[in-house]
Amino acid sequence: MEYEFHWNIVFQKMPELLSGAFVTLHVSVLAMLLGIVIAILLAIAKMNNSKPFCYVATVWVEIARNTPALFQIYMAYFGLGAFGIHLSPYVAVLSALVFINAGYLTETFRGGFQSIPSTQYSASKSLGMTSIQTYRYIILPQMLRRIYHPMTNQFVWSILMSSLGILVGMSELSGTTQRLQSLSFRTLEFFIVAAVMYFIITKLVLFGASLLSRRLFKGEI
């Protein structure tokens, strides 16, 4: 192998890479939070009997689940231009991720909600609980337990998929890496470091999630 590695330049640019990693984390957290909020609304709409809401929710979910993430990002970045809406790369990637997260989480939430047998509602009602109490103490804790793991996976997925920002010139971790390597021509070094950073980020997130789940569910999961 004749390739010589030059790591110095990578270490010099470490602060920029780290700020890129911060943007990655930032965009995925935001995409996850917004996705959760929309997914709750969509799940309610989907389980609702009123036709138009249910229809919108179904179309949203199916499009999000059945087209590539890159397509969504292109759609947000190039496609919306046709309507005169020009999003910045950050907003384009964020909105694409929110769109997909919401689509996937809707099904997760719906599945979690429906997995709780309806006898539990009658049981808690016969114990004299109000419906708010039923949700607060009976339904939601069980639901959270079932959707926790899929939600963690979805979060990791959004971190990994935010790397598509490289294709629309966003300055998150992979976009920053791309820019720095094109300035220095140390492609391999920069991308190896980026890969390691993504690995560390996902592992930290999974570790944090499992710590949190131990606190939340007191070990029973």
Binding site: V156, L160, S174, T187, L188, A195, Y198, T202, K203
Partner: peptide, 14 residues
């Protein structure tokens, strides 16, 4: 745990 896009770039550069 590494984004596919990074794997692709790494491999083809490598």
């Amino acid at each position: 745990s590494v984004p596919l896009i990074i794997q692709l770039i790494l491999f083809s550069t490598f």
